[in-house]
Amino acid sequence: MKIGLFFGSFNPIHVGHLIIANTMATSTDLEQVWFVVSPQNPFKKNKGLLHEFDRYDMVDKAIADNPKLKVSDVEFLMPKPSYTIDTLTKLQEKYPQHTFKLIIGEDNLAQFKNWKNYEAILEYYGLYVYPRPNVPPHEFGNHPAVRFFSAPLLDISATFIRESIKNRRSIRYMVADVVEEMIQRKKFYI
């Protein structure tokens, strides 16, 4: 099976994530998309990050009705911070019957050369890239391992959602109803 891996902190998962994942799962040759919940992104600070189990649960609830979308906790027992190449290698060892592709936003291409072993990611896995607004120039436009796909241009920010919650503003339509209910019930981000 050809599986797209969509990495992120998902703090919280929002409709932008869901639309991109569903678009990749239904408009490309990918058979499934797995959300890989990252305990800690090596390029981001840990401030305001919910526990990974809570973020995993929100993703799981948000995608429960879509058989083409799955959630993975593979990075939870890996050394932190997690590096994409190490996670890809671990998943390929655990699931040798699958082919994995890395899904990233086009905005990540400008800094992709800073990723650990980015050459190996390109050689063994390849990138499935979705569009992002205001993308800086990059050198990967014609790389044979980089494929570009159409998807809605969404600029929904988890930071904006967390700030809205903190300031008691509505997050309706920005997250799935089950995610909003879980955030309210557990008083996340207050």
Rank of each mutant, 00 (worst) to 15 (best):
T84R: 10
T84P: 12
I85L: 10
I85C: 08
I85W: 11
I85G: 12
D86T: 04
T87Q: 10
T87W: 10
L88V: 04
L88H: 05
T89E: 12
T89S: 14
K90F: 12
K90T: 15
K90W: 08
K90Y: 11
K90S: 14
L91F: 08
L91S: 06
L91I: 12
Q92C: 02
E93C: 04
E93H: 14
K94T: 15
Y95E: 14
P96L: 09
Q97F: 08
Q97W: 04
H98T: 03
H98W: 09
H98C: 13
H98D: 10
F100Q: 00
K101L: 09
K101Q: 13
K101F: 13
L102Y: 01
L102E: 00
L102A: 02
L102F: 12
L102I: 02
L102M: 05
I103S: 01
I103Y: 02
I104R: 02
I104M: 13
G105S: 05
E106V: 05
E106G: 06
N108W: 05
N108Y: 07
N108H: 14
F112H: 10
F112V: 09
F112L: 09
N114S: 14
N114R: 14
W115P: 07
W115D: 09
W115H: 12
K116I: 06
N117C: 05
Y118T: 04
Y118F: 14
E119G: 02
E119H: 14
I121Q: 07
I121T: 09
L122A: 08
L122Q: 06
L122V: 09
E123P: 00
E123L: 11
Y124R: 14
Y124N: 14
Y125E: 00
G126A: 01
G126N: 01
G126E: 01
G126P: 02
L127D: 08
L127I: 01
L127A: 06
Y128Q: 04
V129D: 01
V129M: 03
Y130L: 00
Y130I: 02
P131K: 07
P133Y: 00
P133V: 01
P133R: 04
N134Q: 11
N134C: 03
N134V: 07
V135H: 03
V135D: 03
P136D: 07
P136N: 06
P136A: 11
P137W: 04
H138Q: 11
H138D: 11
H138T: 13
H138R: 11
E139C: 13
E139F: 12
F140E: 13
F140W: 13
F140H: 10
G141L: 09
G141R: 11
G141N: 14
G141A: 05
G141F: 04
G141P: 00
N142S: 13
N142P: 01
H143Y: 08
H143S: 08
H143P: 08
H143V: 08
H143G: 09
P144Q: 01
A145T: 11
A145R: 15
A145S: 15
V146Y: 03
V146L: 07
R147N: 11
R147L: 08
R147E: 15
S150Q: 15
A151V: 13
A151P: 10
A151F: 03
P152F: 06
P152R: 11
L154I: 15
L154H: 10
L154Q: 07
D155C: 03
D155Y: 10
I156C: 03
I156P: 00
S157F: 15
S157L: 12
A158G: 15
A158E: 13
